[in-house]
Amino acid sequence: MLIHPWDAARDAGEWQTWLAATDRFGILAVNNVDPAAAPLLVPTHFTPVDEQLVLHLARPNPVWPHLEAAVEVSLAVTGDQAYVPGYWRARADVPEEQGVPTSYYTSVRFVCRPEIIDEPDAKAAILAAQLADLQPEGRHVDADADPYARMLPTIRGIRLTVLRVEAKFKYDDDKPAEHRQHVAEQLEGRDQRSDVAAAVQRRRRLAEVGDRRTHRGGR
């Protein structure tokens, strides 16, 4: 994805902190074995484990032959998004109707090497890791006991070894600080869908990144 210098994560810790506070639900993108056909997109929960992401899918899922042929796949997570009207973004020296609208969002893309897991104990380990991550309150069913043990053959596990990560925080960080404060206030006032979450990211980035004009020596 396009990442301008002002949209980039400050370091790996920034996107890791964001991901830890976000529902681990993304889109797994796999190239189609037919180059003339569209890639396959699979919405799925996943769990980070060391340098890997683990997940499971139903055996009838049509992605399997494409995943078996894939050398690399992508898994992308996007959140804290908001539509920003143009009249909120107009410069002070032009009419509001000349402002250009945009979208705010955070997105993390993992490029990974996939491995399909069919061995029962290894699949059970993936399920255990996902339950611990996504259902931390407990009340789990042991994968070795019914009904999970009986259902285990109906799924396949996936380990994605992370090769590289792209992270984008698109919140107009190239704009003056007062402009960014203004749009954050507008988002909080509108308070629709994930407006407030986008405003939180905007204010956090302003506090941590500051005004880029100051970084450029006031130019």
Rank of each mutant, 00 (worst) to 15 (best):
H179A: 14
I126S: 04
L55A: 12
R89A: 10
P176Q: 03
F25G: 11
E119W: 06
P62R: 13
P114T: 10
V42K: 03
D191I: 08
E178P: 06
A36T: 13
R24M: 15
I27F: 04
A21F: 06
T44E: 01
D7Q: 03
R203S: 00
R156C: 05
R212F: 13
A38F: 00
E115M: 07
E185F: 06
L67F: 12
R109Q: 01
A36E: 12
P153H: 01
R205Q: 02
E115Y: 11
V94D: 08
D23I: 15
R10Q: 15
V71P: 09
V162A: 01
T44N: 06
D133T: 11
G217S: 09
G189L: 10
L2R: 15
L2N: 14
R10H: 12
H179E: 14
P136D: 09
V30E: 00
P114Y: 07
I126K: 02
F25M: 12
I27S: 04
P48D: 10
E178A: 15
V111K: 02
A167V: 00
V63I: 15
D173V: 07
A149W: 12
D23T: 12
G217A: 13
R89W: 09
A38T: 07
A70Q: 08
Q81M: 11
G26L: 05
G79W: 04
E119C: 06
G79L: 06
E185D: 15
M1F: 12
D50Y: 08
G13Q: 14
I27A: 06
W6S: 14
I27D: 02
W15G: 02
V209F: 11
A20F: 07
R139V: 10
P176V: 02
D144T: 14
R113Y: 06
R139N: 15
A82P: 00
L152T: 05
R212W: 12
A92I: 08
R203Y: 00
Q186S: 06
P62M: 09
V141T: 13
D7K: 01
P60T: 09
D144C: 15
A37F: 05
I158F: 04
Y105P: 01
D191Q: 14
D93I: 10
S194A: 12
A184E: 04
F169I: 00
Q130M: 15
A92T: 12
D195W: 02
R205F: 00
D211A: 06
P5L: 04
A92G: 14
R156H: 11
Y104M: 10
S194C: 08
D191G: 09
I3V: 15
V30W: 00
A76Q: 13
L55N: 04
G13D: 15
A167K: 01
P120W: 02
R190F: 02
E96S: 09
R59C: 11
K168E: 05
D173T: 14
F25H: 15
Y104A: 04
P43V: 09
L28C: 07
G157S: 11
R150A: 10
P60S: 08
R216C: 10
D133N: 13
E14M: 03
D142I: 08
R204G: 08
I158V: 12
R150L: 13
D23L: 10
D133P: 07
D211V: 05
W15I: 00
Q181P: 02
V111H: 01
Q130G: 13
V30L: 07
Q201D: 05
R150P: 02
E72T: 11
P85S: 02
V33W: 06
V49E: 03
